[in-house]
């Protein structure tokens, strides 16, 4: 199961599952990070060690370590 580390900037993948702490997971899902939703990794923000995603038209940044809670469907 690829996590955001395995995605290239600009690549879109389907979300498989959202892990992490309950309230974090609930927040992410309410902002549109639901399993089955296509998510684009916009860029890695290396200055802040964050990852920016696009989901449902919105751009959202997560800390690289915390973004590990997102698992994606394998592309190939």
């Amino acid at each position: 199961m690829p996590n955001p580390r395995d995605l290239r900037p600009g690549e879109t993948a389907r979300l498989l599952e959202v892990g992490g702490d309950r309230s974090f997971r609930r927040r992410l899902m309410e902002m549109g990070f639901l399993p089955g939703t296509p998510v684009r990794l916009v860029r890695r923000v290396r200055i802040g060690d964050l990852v920016e995603f696009e989901v449902r038209g919105g751009h959202i940044s997560l800390r690289a370590s915390e973004a590990g809670a997102l698992r994606f469907e394998s592309q190939r």
Binding site: G20, M31, H59, L62, E66
Partner: peptide, 12 residues
């Protein structure tokens, strides 16, 4: 205390 995860919207 536990660190609160960051969810930061990047508005246009």
């Amino acid at each position: 205390g536990p660190r609160v995860p960051l969810i930061l919207e990047m508005p246009p």
